[in-house]
Computed example of a mutant assay.
Amino acid sequence: MKIYLDLDEIDSIKTPYVQSSSDIMKITGNNIGNFAFRHALRFLVKEIESYKVVNWGDARRLINEEVRVEKVILSCANWLGFSDADERSNLVRAKIIEDFSAPVVAFGLGAQASNVDEKLEFGPNTARLAKAIAKHSEQISVRDEFTLSLLKKIGIENAIVTGCPSNFINQSSSFIKRLATQAENGRRKKLSLQKFIIGEFSGGNKHSGGVLRRSLEFMKETNSNYLIQSPVLLPFFLNESASVPSPYTANKPKDMSLESLEAILRQQVLGFSSVDAWMDFSRSCDLSFGMRIHGNMIPLQSGVPSVLIAHDSRTLGLSESMSFPKVSLSDFLGAELREIPELMYTQFLNQLPEYEYKRQTLSDTFKKFLSINDV
């Protein structure tokens, strides 16, 4: 048996209309954007359908039943964290990988930290997980140089930087050309005729509130859709709660009433239960920007110019590993509202050649990685 060790649902939610917000978060791993990562493996691993999707609980059952497992695929994401919760989760993961004692193919392993600090060290369970993956892998795909450096500190040498697998969802040979054309066409339109995607703000940064406030101001003046991924706004979006969440009330523009804020959120917030649906909507838009990698990657892979608002070392590290087009926090917060689209188009077009070059380089890296791991 070959298994794909992950959550039960890879890139879509079955019967989403009967699922509560808490159900949706449980199914997606607390972030709908996680689906982008997993969806990408359909395009990277040709034989992915021959792998049985197994969750971590069922994995332990297979071990107890002594079922022989030939190979394990892992879509890892931000497993290498530094919290007590990460330590608990990683002990479970490490034991399962050790007990399977089967070849592992690990995609996109990432270190999750609020800042890049050379003094950071993994906790014992997180280090144990990393070493278990390394021991059973020919080579590990990691998302950025920061993760690579931390793995080297604990003696792991068989890792290579690949960026995020979601960077390769779009396999069209005209992908980059279409992006350039879309950006040029979009910037020529009147502001009133443009349709924007704004990615959900990412909390935990001292500038998060400022970005949210600026985004709400922009939403008030433009044809914008605010795409959510996390638990914060989901209960309100699904009519489970009548109250606007506190991060939004606390960071609303001074000249915006609570009633106006609620109206904007009711009318302009969208959420999707599958990557395909998210991408299908995205292609109808002109421009995407926001604080989240996957919130921008999905529109980008749909052929829509997308720009990351670079706000912390974690996000910046991943964006730099892929040369994902970005704009500085100060430039975004300092721009006049009507200047924001032109700022984004300009930055996107200026950085697109580097993104194209880096994407091709990472594509070659992924091909070698897959060959080395015999998938």
Rank of each mutant, 00 (worst) to 15 (best):
3 I>L: 10
7 L>N: 10
10 I>N: 07
11 D>P: 07
20 S>E: 06
21 S>A: 15
28 T>Q: 06
30 N>V: 05
38 R>A: 00
45 V>F: 08
50 S>G: 05
53 V>Y: 04
54 V>F: 00
56 W>Y: 13
60 R>G: 05
62 L>M: 15
63 I>Q: 06
66 E>Y: 09
70 E>F: 00
71 K>M: 05
74 L>E: 01
78 N>L: 09
79 W>Y: 12
83 S>H: 03
87 E>P: 08
88 R>H: 07
90 N>C: 10
94 A>R: 04
99 D>C: 06
103 P>T: 09
104 V>S: 07
108 G>S: 14
112 Q>C: 03
114 S>W: 01
118 E>R: 13
122 F>H: 07
125 N>R: 12
132 A>I: 00
133 I>T: 01
144 D>C: 08
148 L>E: 05
149 S>L: 09
167 N>Y: 01
167 N>A: 10
172 S>I: 05
176 I>P: 01
179 L>K: 02
186 G>N: 02
187 R>P: 02
189 K>Q: 12
201 F>N: 07
202 S>T: 06
205 N>A: 11
206 K>G: 11
208 S>F: 06
209 G>F: 04
216 L>M: 14
228 I>L: 12
231 P>D: 08
242 A>F: 04
246 S>E: 13
247 P>K: 12
254 K>T: 13
259 E>P: 00
266 R>I: 14
268 Q>P: 06
277 A>Q: 13
281 F>K: 10
285 C>T: 10
291 M>P: 04
295 G>F: 04
298 I>T: 14
301 Q>H: 02
307 V>R: 03
314 R>Y: 02
314 R>H: 11
317 G>H: 07
317 G>S: 06
317 G>L: 03
319 S>W: 02
329 L>W: 09
329 L>R: 13
337 L>R: 11
345 Y>D: 11
345 Y>L: 06
346 T>Q: 14
349 L>I: 10
352 L>I: 05
354 E>W: 00
362 L>C: 00
362 L>D: 00
367 K>I: 06
370 L>G: 08
370 L>H: 03
372 I>D: 12
